[in-house]
Nucleic acid binder design. Structure first.
Length: 822
DNA sequence: GTTCGCTCACTTTTT
DNA sequence: GTGAGCGAAC
C-alpha cells in the first residue's frame, strides 16, 4: 500500500551500514532531518547538555512516559533501534513488554509508520496480545499494524498478493492437517503403493520435516528421500506438491516455503518488501525453524534493524523443527549484533528462581543467564514423594482445597503435566471432590470433528471446488454414498481435470450410478446449489443454521446417544454464535483456515490443567508439577530418540514448568504409576535431584520416609543413579488423615470401580455445568446428565454429593454441580 | 454400504 | 486400559 520511500522522513535509515555501529549508543550525527524527531532518550535527565533545535523540540514529545517503567536493560532493548539486537529474555523478565514498548517507541519517535514494521509471533494469541498492549501504550487508536502477526498469517498475506508468481491463484485454500492427510493418502495410492505398508501419517511427518527445514522436493537429501517407500520419498513429495497446485491449495508449511520461492525467484518483489520494512521484530526466536529463519534472513537483508527476542532456556519445540541453534548463532548471522540480557525477574520469588536456575544450570550449550529478583525469598519449592498417581492426584486436590479455603483463587492455580495421559487421574479426582477445573489444550475448538464437518459444509457452499472438504462431508451424515460412488466421482474429476463437485453433477446426468446413490448425490448437489444461491440473501449465520439443519447434520447428532453428542451440538451452536463476529461467510472461513484457536470462555474460578508445553508463556500463583519420574519426565522417548539433546530439552521443559509459578511450586513424583493399564514402579526424576538443596523443602517425608532426607550424604554422590528419594518407603498414615483422604475413603467404598468411564480426554472440564448452588435439589431416581459419564439416574443423595448409576459408566459419586437434570 | 470386533501403539503440537 | 483404524461379516 503506502509505498516505502514515500513521505517518510527517514527513508535512508535501513540502508546505511548500521551493523558496525551497534556498539555505539544511538544518536548518530548527520543522519538527516529525522534525527530532530528523535529525542535524546539516553539523556532524559540532562537538560544542560546539547539540545536539539527549538523547532525540533516543539515537534518532540515533552517526555516519554512509556519508557519510565523500564529497567535499564529493558530500556536499552527498547531504545537500541539501529542494527541487529538479540534480547535474551529469561522467564518473567518482561519480554513482551520490551517488544511492545519497542514498537511503540518506533512509532512515537516517528522512525517508521505502523505499516513499515514487521513483527512476527508464533501464535495468534501472542499476536493479539501484542496488538492490544501496543494500543494501550500508544494510546487509543493506533491504526492497525498490518504486518504484526504470526509467521503464517504474514506468509499468507504476502502469498495472496503474488500467488500467480508461484503457480497459485490468489484464492488458494489452506489445507488443515486432515485434508493434508487425505491428500497424502491419495498420492500414495496413485503411486501404486501399499497404503498399509507406507502410512500417510509417516509421509506427512517426513514432508513436514522437510518443509520445516526449507527443503523443496528437489533439495531433499538423497538418503532421506529414500527413507520412505523404498526410495520414493522425494518423488511422493513432488507428487504431493503437484496435487496441491492442482487443487490451488497450500499446506501450512508451504505458506513459508512458497514465500521463500517467491523472494528468490522474483527479486523485484523481494526488493519491494525490503523497501517496506524498516524494523523487524521477532518473538520467541528460540522456537523458529529453519524455514522461518531463512524467511527472516532474506527479509532482513534489506533492513538491518532486526530485533529478536527469545530465551534459549525455554526452547521446548525441537521435536517439531525448532532450532535452538538459530538463537545461539544470532551473533554470527547478524554481525555486530547487540546482545542484551534481561535477567531481572518480576514474576517469581527467590526460591522459585533459585530452584529453576539450579536445574537449568545442568544444561550445556546455553547462552547463559542468571535470573534474579528483588522479591522476597518466599516459600521453598516443595517436593513430595507419593505412593501412586492416585495419591498424587488426591494430595494435589487436597492442597488446592486448602488453598481455596484460605482464599486462593482457583484461576491462579495450575497443574502442569508432562503427558496428557496424566490428566485423567487429576480430572477423576477433581470431579470426585467437586473441584472446578478446566483443561487447556487438548483438541481445540476447530479441530473437533463436528466443527470441521460444519465448516466443510460452509466451505463447499462458498467454494464448491474445494474437493477435500467436499469429500469430507459427502457422506456425513450417512446418505448412502460409499467409497465406490465417491471413487467414481473422484476418478471422473481427475480424468477431466475438474472439481469433484462438477464431476458429481455430470455423473448425476449420466446413468453411471445405481439409482439410490444417484438420488442421494443429486439431492446433495442440489442442496449445495440452493445454499449457494442464498449466500447473498441470507445473513451468513442464518445460512449456516439452514445448512446444518437441511443437510441433516444437526439431526445426526441429535439422534446420537453417546455422552458427547450434546456437547457437540453445543459446539455447533457456539460456532454459529462465533460467526456473528464476522461480516461475511468468506471472512469467517478465511479466519478459520488460519486461526485454529477460538478464545476459550473464562467462566468462573477454575483450576487449570494442561501440559507443560501448553503452559509456556503463562503464569500462576501456585503451580503443581506432578509426575517427576524417570521415564515420564524426562520422557523415555525423548532420551531414546534424541539422547543428550532430548534430555536437555526435557530439562528446559522442567525449567519452564517451575518458572510458571509466582509464589509457590509443588513438585511431586509417584513411586508407582499406572502406565498402559498396569502398575509400574518408578524412580524419581533426575531433575528432582538436580534441584538445589537450598531452595527445596521435602514434604511429607519426615516420619514416613525416614532415612533418606535425614541423611545428607545421600543427597549427593552419583547424580543419576541413586536418588535421595529412591529409598523412601511410604508408610500409611502420613497424609492419610487429611479431610480429602477421608472423603476419598468414603467415596471409594461406594465406588468399587474406580474410573471406569474412559471417554476421551477433551476439554470437557470446562463444559461441565457451573451451578454450584448448594442443594440443587436432586433426589433419588432423578435422571441426570454428566458431560463425561453421560446419562444416569441418582441412586443416593448426600448433601451436594450424588451417587449416580450411569448407563454406560456404572456407579459414580460426583458433586451435583457436575450434572444437570434431563 | 454399514457395523462390529479385533489389533495396534501409546510425548509434546502452532499454524 | 483405551481409542483409532482396519478387515470381515451383515
Amino acid at each position: 500500500m503506502e509505498n516505502a520511500g514515500g513521505p517518510f522522513p527517514q527513508s535512508g535509515a535501513c540502508y546505511t551500514g548500521h551493523m558496525t555501529n551497534s556498539t555505539q549508543p544511538r544518536q548518530q550525527p548527520g543522519r538527516g532531518p529525522a534525527d530532530d524527531g528523535d529525542p535524546p532518550f539516553d539523556l532524559p535527565d540532562a537538560p544542560g547538555l546539547e539540545r536539539p533545535s527549538i523547532s525540533a523540540r516543539a515537534l518532540q514529545r515533552p517526555e516519554v512516559p512509556y519508557l519510565e517503567n523500564l529497567n535499564p536493560e529493558q530500556r536499552e532493548a527498547v531504545e537500541h533501534l539501529d542494527g541487529p539486537v538479540l534480547v535474551l529474555a529469561g522467564a518473567g523478565t518482561g519480554k513482551t513488554r520490551v517488544l511492545t514498548t519497542r514498537i511503540s517507541h518506533i512509532l512515537a519517535s516517528r522512525r517508521a509508520f505502523p505499516s513499515q514494521i514487521l513483527a512476527v509471533t508464533f501464535t495468534n494469541k501472542a499476536a493479539r496480545e501484542m496488538k492490544e498492549r501496543i494500543g494501550h501504550l500508544v494510546g487509543g487508536t493506533v491504526e492497525g499494524m498490518p504486518w504484526l502477526g504470526t509467521f503464517h498469517s504474514i506468509g499468507v498475506k504476502i502469498l495472496r498478493r503474488h500467488a500467480e508468481l508461484v503457480g497459485l491463484r490468489s484464492q488458494f485454500t489452506i489445507l488443515d492437517p486432515d485434508d493434508q492427510l487425505r491428500l497424502m493418502k491419495q498420492v500414495i495410492e496413485a503411486e501404486g503403493l501399499d497404503k498399509d505398508r507406507w502410512p500417510a501419517r509417516q509421509l506427512a511427518n517426513l514432508i513436514d520435516s522437510w518443509k520445516n527445514r526449507g527443503l523443496t522436493p528437489d533439495k531433499v537429501p538423497q538418503g532421506e528421500g529414500f527413507a520412505f517407500a523404498a526410495g520414493k520419498g522425494a518423488k511422493l513429495y513432488a507428487a504431493y506438491q503437484h496435487r496441491l497446485k492442482d487443487l490451488n491449495a497450500c499446506d501450512f508449511g508451504d505458506l513459508l516455503l512458497e514465500n521463500l520461492r517467491l523472494f528468490r525467484e522474483h527479486p523485484d518483489v523481494l526488493a519491494d518488501y525490503h523497501k517496506r520494512f524498516r524494523f523487524i521484530l521477532v518473538d520467541e526466536y528460540q522456537d523458529t525453524n529453519i524455514a522461518q529463519y531463512l524467511w527472516l534472513r532474506i527479509l532482513a537483508q534489506g533492513c538491518p534493524n532486526v530485533c529478536c527476542v527469545g530465551d534459549d532456556d525455554q526452547s521446548i519445540y525441537g521435536w517439531r523443527g525448532a532450532e535452538v541453534d538459530n538463537i545461539l548463532r544470532f551473533e554470527k548471522d547478524f554481525p555486530g549484533a547487540k546482545v542484551i540480557r534481561l535477567e531481572r525477574n518480576y514474576r517469581s520469588t527467590g526460591h522459585i528462581l533459585g530452584a529453576a536456575a539450579g536445574l537449568i544450570a545442568h544444561n550445556k550449550g546455553r547462552l547463559g543467564k542468571t535470573l534474579f529478583t528483588d522479591d522476597e525469598a518466599g516459600n521453598l519449592v516443595s517436593v513430595a514423594g507419593v505412593w501412586d498417581d492416585e495419591e498424587e492426584a488426591r494430595s494435589i486436590a487436597d492442597e488446592i482445597e486448602r488453598l481455596r479455603k484460605s482464599g486462593h483463587g482457583l484461576n491462579q492455580i495450575a497443574v502442569l503435566v508432562r503427558a496428557s495421559a496424566q490428566m485423567r487421574a487429576m480430572e477423576d479426582r477433581f470431579i470426585t471432590v467437586g473441584l472446578p477445573y478446566r483443561v487447556i489444550g487438548g483438541p481445540r475448538f476447530y479441530e473437533r470433528q463436528e466443527i470441521k464437518d460444519a465448516i466443510a459444509y460452509l466451505e463447499v457452499t462458498s467454494n464448491p471446488s474445494n474437493d477435500l472438504k467436499f469429500e469430507r462431508i459427502v457422506n456425513v451424515p450417512k446418505r448412502g454414498l460409499g467409497d465406490t460412488s465417491v471413487k467414481r466421482v473422484h476418478e471422473l474429476a481427475r480424468a477431466r481435470g475438474i472439481a469433484m463437485f462438477d464431476a458429481a453433477r455430470e455423473i448425476i446426468a449420466s446413468e453411471e450410478l445405481p439409482g439410490k446413490a444417484r438420488k442421494a448425490l443429486s439431492d446433495l448437489v442440489q442442496a449445495f446449489e440452493r445454499w449457494r444461491s442464498q449466500i447473498d440473501n441470507l445473513k451468513h449465520t442464518e445460512l449456516a443454521e439452514l445448512i446444518l439443519d437441511e443437510s441433516g447434520y444437526t439431526a445426526m447428532w441429535q439422534a446420537d446417544k453417546s455422552p458427547q453428542a450434546q456437547s457437540r451440538l453445543d459446539n455447533l451452536k457456539e460456532l454459529v454464535r462465533f460467526m456473528h463476529d464476522f461480516e461475511t461467510l468468506n471472512g469467517f472461513l478465511e479466519h478459520v483456515s488460519l486461526v485454529m484457536d477460538a478464545d476459550q470462555s473464562n467462566d468462573g474460578e477454575r483450576v487449570s490443567i494442561m501440559t507443560l508445553h501448553a503452559a509456556k508463556g503463562l503464569e500462576f500463583d501456585t503451580v503443581f508439577l506432578p509426575g517427576w519420574e524417570e521415564g515420564l519426565f524426562p520422557h523415555q522417548r525423548a532420551l531414546d530418540e534424541q539422547g543428550q539433546a532430548g534430555l536437555e530439552e526435557e530439562r528446559r521443559l522442567a525449567y519452564v514448568g517451575i518458572t510458571r509459578a509466582r509464589r509457590q511450586a509443588h513438585i511431586s513424583f509417584a513411586q508407582n504409576r499406572r502406565l498402559r493399564g498396569l502398575f509400574q514402579a518408578a524412580i524419581p526424576s533426575r531433575f528432582v535431584d538436580e534441584l538445589p538443596e537450598a531452595h527445596v523443602e521435602v514434604r511429607e517425608m519426615k516420619s514416613p520416609f525416614g532415612g533418606a532426607y535425614a541423611n545428607p550424604q545421600n543427597l549427593y554422590g552419583n547424580p543419576y543413579g541413586r536418588s535421595r528419594f529412591e529409598e523412601a518407603q511410604p508408610q500409611f498414615r502420613s497424609s492419610y488423615s487429611t479431610p480429602g483422604w477421608q472423603r476419598a475413603q468414603n467415596a471409594r467404598t461406594q465406588q468399587p470401580t474406580p474410573a471406569a468411564s474412559r471417554s476421551p480426554l477433551t476439554i470437557e472440564g470446562q463444559l461441565v455445568a457451573s451451578s454450584t448452588a448448594e442443594g440443587a435439589g436432586y433426589k433419588t431416581g432423578d435422571r441426570v446428565f454428566h458431560s463425561k459419564f453421560g446419562e444416569g439416574r441418582v441412586a443416593e443423595v448426600d448433601g451436594n454429593k450424588l451417587t449416580i448409576e450411569f448407563k454406560t459408566s456404572g456407579r459414580k459419586r460426583v458433586v451435583d454441580s457436575f450434572v444437570r437434570p434431563i
